[in-house]
Design a protein around this nucleic acid. Structure first.
Length: 205
DNA sequence: AAAACGGGGGC
DNA sequence: GCCCCAGTTTT
């Protein structure tokens, strides 16, 4: 099966099942996408959306967040996981970003507190740069369908960069996730409802 | 490589 | 109660 039709099948079933799209569709400024992505870790889409709405309706710019107390931020983003540590990091990020131009490289982004390779790549993609953001879904599914045989997300990213042409990277960033959330679940995948079972290595990861 | 960081929602 | 959650940092 070619890559294009593989992605199309995954995308179609994800759409049919109403996979969350908030982070993919959100029209925000780059610093807001950065913060929204930090908020999103280990947290369902709807819970992230709530926190994002509250935070950015309260703060009109990066400087406002920098000036907030950590406790205020905590109160606004309470719906997400790890909200205490995230509140602290978001304030730090806001303080840093309000004093310099927005970072546009992987190296600059990952120096920010709470920004790892996944978040950095999401932001780069949002800025229109070619990037593959490997989260647990992308890593798991890439292995399950035999695209890669990797132990770490870093290695998966490296391999996927070779496998997919650059123009498909943006699709990889959200199609795998939607598919992983609705069909190819971590522990209990819905294999009987899977459109790409023919290429699956059956639950090897 | 594994543990720690935390809490909420769905069935 | 178990599953699931758009990870990052520290050990």
């Amino acid at each position: 099966m070619d890559l294009q039709s593989l992605l199309e099948k995954m995308e179609r079933v994800a759409k049919e099942r109403n996979a969350p799209i908030f982070l993919h569709k959100a029209k925000l400024e780059p610093y807001q996408i950065l913060i929204a992505t930090v908020l999103s870790s280990r947290t369902r889409d709807e819970q992230t959306a709530k926190a994002v709405e509250k935070l950015f309706s309260r703060a009109k710019g990066i400087e406002d967040i920098a000036k907030m107390k950590v406790e205020e931020i905590e109160e606004l983003i309470k719906s997400v996981g790890f909200y205490r540590v995230k509140a602290r990091r978001i304030k730090e990020i806001a303080e840093i970003l309000s004093r310099r131009k927005f970072p546009e490289t992987f190296e600059e982004l990952t120096q920010l507190p709470g920004v790892g390779r996944k978040t950095a790549n999401i932001v780069l993609a949002y800025l229109g740069k070619p990037a593959i953001a490997v989260d647990t879904h992308v890593h798991r599914i890439s292995n399950r369908i035999g695209l890669v045989k990797t132990k770490t997300p870093e290695k998966t990213e490296e391999e996927l960069r070779k496998i997919f042409p650059t123009e498909l990277w943006e699709k990889v960033n959200y199609v795998f996730v939607g598919f992983g959330q609705t069909v190819c679940l971590p522990r209990n995948p819905k294999c009987s409802e899977c459109p790409i079972g023919d290429v699956c290595q059956k639950n090897i990861i």
